[in-house]
Design a protein around this nucleic acid. Sequence first.
DNA 1: CGAGTTCCTTGATATGTATCAATAAGCCCG
DNA 2: CGGGCTTATTGATACATATCAAGGAACTCG
Lengths: 231, 231
Amino acid sequence: MNGLTQDDLALLRQNPVFAGLKDATFLQVAGSVTVQTFPKHNLIFQAGDRASHFFLITSGAVQLFRSDTDGVEKTVNLFRRPQSFGEAVMFLERTFPVSAQTLQESRLLRVDAAPLMSLLKADPEIGLGLLAAMSAHLKLLVDEITLLRAPTARHRVAEFILRQVHKLEGAATFDLPYSKTAIARRLDISPEVLSRTFAGLRKDGVSVKGRTVTVADIGLLYRQVGLDNGS
Amino acid sequence: MNGLTQDDLALLRQNPVFAGLKDATFLQVAGSVTVQTFPKHNLIFQAGDRASHFFLITSGAVQLFRSDTDGVEKTVNLFRRPQSFGEAVMFLERTFPVSAQTLQESRLLRVDAAPLMSLLKADPEIGLGLLAAMSAHLKLLVDEITLLRAPTARHRVAEFILRQVHKLEGAATFDLPYSKTAIARRLDISPEVLSRTFAGLRKDGVSVKGRTVTVADIGLLYRQVGLDNGS
DNA sequence: CGAGTTCCTTGATATGTATCAATAAGCCCG
DNA sequence: CGGGCTTATTGATACATATCAAGGAACTCG
């Protein structure tokens, strides 16, 4: 053991760098992760240091900063749990372009580049797997943003339905993938509004009975939402 | 030339797979991208085919589907401009687990794996560069989602300010990075509400004069927003 | 089958945000 | 400096959503 808690492992696992790894590979890498705690205002690394590792924050706060020629510190970025920093530079095998210091007492997970990079270089498939996972993840997030930027609850719900339906026109029936409360949370609306919105969509041929949703005319729904289904 | 328009290039460029490449590398890869147009209901690839390429949609719509043993088509996913599909499988050098067909007349950009993969294998740094860029991109998107999920305009604006400030407490002054209209768009609120919100924050020590913002007490702002600055 | 949950729906109300409209401030360029 | 443009502010109003409250439906477990 290296002192990592369950929480630490979960945090690592959901970091983009690790999310795409297979369990076995992940555990292998996690084995070399170490916990470091720093007091307030402690330097973590300095601009110009070799980026032989990156950090994930479990508590506290870290400031990335640049020291001007005249010694004035200019903060570039501020990170907190569950953010990580330094990984991009690590992948690039460069030196840190900025310095990092804690703003509070902080607990960090230090991920050394060596084990990860040697895995990546020994087995290119791992790197490709990471690329695959990251691009898939990016797609999901872009979709999520599209959904959240929809102007009204009606639009969000309709978009959500249209994504479940996987068709451009005609009729369709499908089951909601999870509870309505959870869907409401995901769409960032209250459960009440979700319920009302479903009710309001009834006159447009959307009927919801329990978890089963039936759409009479998908094309109509596209038009309702102001999207173009291309037809 | 291979028939790619400016629009095609821009679309490719903003795809996660290409967004992280250096210009030179990008142009090299783009040189082997081809345009393919398909009529409606045309098979693009079949489950089991070798994933020697992936596609980006410039117009039309594509359905990914699975043919059950009894021949029933079950749609897995539906993609439209500017989405891409197949890249994850391509990176993994596997065969497509599903089939793809157009639902409308469609125009696709076909990106062959060979040039990209040989680049990746010849120069591991390119793959690492992609990983670096993707993980940076993922961070941005996650931040964006956090921002959009903030409950009120006040929260969004405060979060936005706190991100510009890069500090946890004390006072700070900074310049807005772009016009207020643009900021409003980014926060998904109307310019009027942004204006009012700035005005409303005045009594909490936030003053906005032109593009210059001054925050008297950052800790107060954190508390206002219900965030914890850890102090 | 029925009591106890949890989840969902519906109504009433308050709050927040968009929208419309008008004014004011900033900016560019002659 | 001043006209003409864009950008920002402020007010009035309408609409959308959250919240509070209560009733109803579905699910679980004995």
